[in-house]
Design a protein around this nucleic acid. Sequence first.
DNA 1: CATAAAATTTAGGCAAGTCTAAAAATTTAA
DNA 2: TTAAATTTTTAGACTTGCCTAAATTTTATG
Lengths: 217, 217
Amino acid sequence: MNSYTEENYLKSIYHLSVPTDESVSTNSIAASVNTKAASVTDMLKKLADKKLINYTKYQGVSLTEEGKAIAINIVRKHRLWEFFLVEKLHFKWDEVHELAEELEHITSVELIDRLDKFLGNPKYDPHGDPIPDSTGCIKKDELIPISTLQPGQSAIIMGVREHAPVFLQYLEKMNLTIGKQIKPIEVIAFDHSVLLSVNNNTVSISRDVAKNILVTI
Amino acid sequence: MNSYTEENYLKSIYHLSVPTDESVSTNSIAASVNTKAASVTDMLKKLADKKLINYTKYQGVSLTEEGKAIAINIVRKHRLWEFFLVEKLHFKWDEVHELAEELEHITSVELIDRLDKFLGNPKYDPHGDPIPDSTGCIKKDELIPISTLQPGQSAIIMGVREHAPVFLQYLEKMNLTIGKQIKPIEVIAFDHSVLLSVNNNTVSISRDVAKNILVTI
DNA sequence: CATAAAATTTAGGCAAGTCTAAAAATTTAA
DNA sequence: TTAAATTTTTAGACTTGCCTAAATTTTATG
Ligand SMILES: [Mn+2]
Ligand SMILES: [Mn+2]
Ligand SMILES: [Mn+2]
Ligand SMILES: [Mn+2]
C-alpha cells in the first residue's frame, strides 16, 4: 500500500506531466505538493525504489505504468467525490476541491465502484474534467480556450483550466458556467481582453480569464 | 487540529469508558487501538497536554469535556457514513465498519451536516447504534440482551453488541436482523443456549450469541 | 504485611516525512 | 567556453508515532 503522501506525489507528477508529456522537475513537484525541493528528492528515491517513477538524478522524473495507474485512480476518486458533493450534497463547484483532496485517499475499490454506479457513471466532474473509468481510461475531448476563438464563432463552455475558488466564483457571477453558449464579439487590441455575449448579455473578460475557460465549437 | 491517530485514541477511550463510566486503563486502550502499552503512555501524555483527557500516572484516564465532544463527533461521522454505505451504496451491514473507520476522519463539519440531511437525519446506524446529532446529543434507549428475556416474552431486535463481520453474517443467516420480532421459548439448562422463534421458525442460539443481541420489549 | 504478579512508565531506538544549510550538477549567458 | 545563476542533491536534524527492554508502581495473594 502507498501512503497518503506518496499518493499525493504521484498525483502531482501525473498532473504536471499531462500537458507536456515531458519529464517533471523536482522544483515543480515541490511547488505542487507544497514542500521543499530537498523533501521531494527524498520522496523521489522512495518512489523510484517502489518502481512507481523513472528517476535519474538531476534529470527529472516520469511515472511508470504502475505509477500512472495509481495516479489515475486517485484522479478518478477525486472527480467522483466532487461529483457526489455537488450533485447529491449540493455543494457549489468552488467548494468541493479541498474536500475531494481528502476523500480521494479512501482506499476501497469496492466503495468507489459503487459510488460511481450510485451517481449514474458520470463522465465529467463539476469542472468539466473527464472522470477516468475503473480501468483507467480517460475520455479526452478536444477543448480549446476562449482566447483562441475567432469573433463571431459561437461555442459552448465545457470546462475550466483553473480551479481556484475565487476564479470559479467569478465565473458563476458572470454566468460563465458549464453548458453555457457564448460568442466572442471582439478582442480588444489594447489588452487582448474579450467581449463576448452570454445569455443575450455582453460581458468583458480579461485575456487571462479567456485562456482559462475551455469550450467546444 | 488533531491527527488521525489522536482521534482514534479519543474514540477508543470514549467507547471504553461508556459502559462503566470509570477511568480507562492503558492496557485496554492498547488493545483497542492495536498498539503496545508503551506507545499508549506516550500518546496519553500528548492528549493530556492538549487537555483532551484527565491523566494521572498509573491511574488510568478519562476524557475532558472537550475530548468527549471530539470523540462523539467521530462516532457521529462513523455512524452516518455506515448509514450512507448501507442505504445508498447497498453494502451489507457486515461490510461497512472498516470503511467507516477511514471515512470518520474526514474533517469537514459542513460535509457531515449535509450528509446527515441528505440521508434524512437518521437516528440509528445499520447496527442499531444511535447517531449523535450535530450538538453531540445521543439518544439512549434501554436495550437489553436476549439472554435476559423470560421464555414467552416477545421482543424486537434493536441492535447488536458485537460488530465482527462473522457475527453479523451469522445473524443474517439466522434471520436475526434489526426490526425482527423474536420470542424465547426455552433456555436450555445444560449450556444456557436459547431456543427462540423468529418468523414462525424455531432457532437455537448460544448464550454468547444471546448476550450480544439487543432487544426492546 | 511482605512478596509475587501484573500493569504502567521510562529509556533508547527506528521509520516516515519534513526542514535548513551546504555541496554538487546543470543550465544560461557573457 | 568559462563564469554565474539556477536547480538539484546531500548532510544533519526535528517531529510523530511506534517498538523492545528495563525500571517502577500498583495490586493481588499467602
Ligand atoms: Mn478538484
Ligand atoms: Mn474537478
Ligand atoms: Mn462501525
Ligand atoms: Mn455501527
